Amino acid sequence: MSGHSKWATTKHKKAIIDSKRGKIFTRHAKEIAVAARIGGGDPEGNPRLRTAILKAREDNMPQDNIKKAIQRGTGEIPGAQYEEYQFEGHGPKGVAIILKVMTDNKNRTVPELRTIFSKNGGALGENGCVSWMFDSKGLITVDKSSLPEDQVMDLALEAGADDAVIHEDVYEFLTAPQDFSHVLEVIKSKKITPSFAEVTMIPQTTVPLEGKDAQTMMRLMEMLEDHDDVQHVYANFDIPDDILESLSS
Rank of each mutant, 00 (worst) to 15 (best):
D150S: 13
F180E: 03
F87N: 02
V142C: 02
L174V: 07
S189W: 06
G125A: 15
I166Q: 05
R108F: 12
E112T: 09
T175S: 12
G138K: 07
E88P: 01
F173K: 04
S146C: 10
G94K: 07
Q81P: 01
H167E: 12
N127W: 10
S136A: 14
G121E: 01
P194M: 04
V142Y: 04
V183F: 01
E126S: 08
S146N: 10
D154P: 01
D163G: 01
N105V: 08
G121A: 09
F180R: 04
V186I: 15
D150C: 06
D135V: 09
M153H: 12
P111N: 11
K93A: 12
E185N: 13
G122E: 06
I98H: 03
V165H: 06
L139A: 11
D163C: 07
A176N: 06
I192T: 05
F173C: 07
L124E: 02
E83L: 15
A176I: 00
K190F: 08
E83S: 15
L113R: 00
G91I: 03
T175A: 02
V110R: 08
G128M: 02
V101Y: 04
A161V: 07
A164Q: 06
E185D: 14
L124G: 02
E112N: 11
A96S: 15
D104L: 04
K119I: 04
H167S: 10
S145I: 11
G121Q: 06
G160R: 13
W132R: 11
G75N: 03
A123M: 14
D163F: 11
E84D: 12
G128Y: 02
C129W: 02
R114I: 08
K144T: 00
T115A: 14
I140W: 05
Y85G: 03
E83P: 00
F134P: 04
A159V: 09
L184G: 07
T103M: 11
I140Q: 03
G75E: 02
L184K: 08
T115G: 06
L99S: 04
N107P: 00
A176L: 08
I187Q: 02
F87E: 09
M102G: 02
P92D: 06
D154E: 12
S145T: 13
A159K: 04
H182N: 12
D163T: 13
W132Y: 15
G91Y: 03
L147P: 00
W132A: 14
G75W: 01
K100Q: 13
G121R: 07
P148G: 06
E168C: 07
D154K: 15
G160Y: 13
S118P: 04
F134M: 04
Q178K: 13
P78W: 10
F180G: 00
S131V: 02
D104R: 11
N105T: 12
G138V: 05
N107D: 14
A123K: 13
G94A: 05
V95K: 02
V186Q: 01
G89V: 02
G138F: 01
K119S: 13
T115I: 10
S118C: 01
G138I: 05
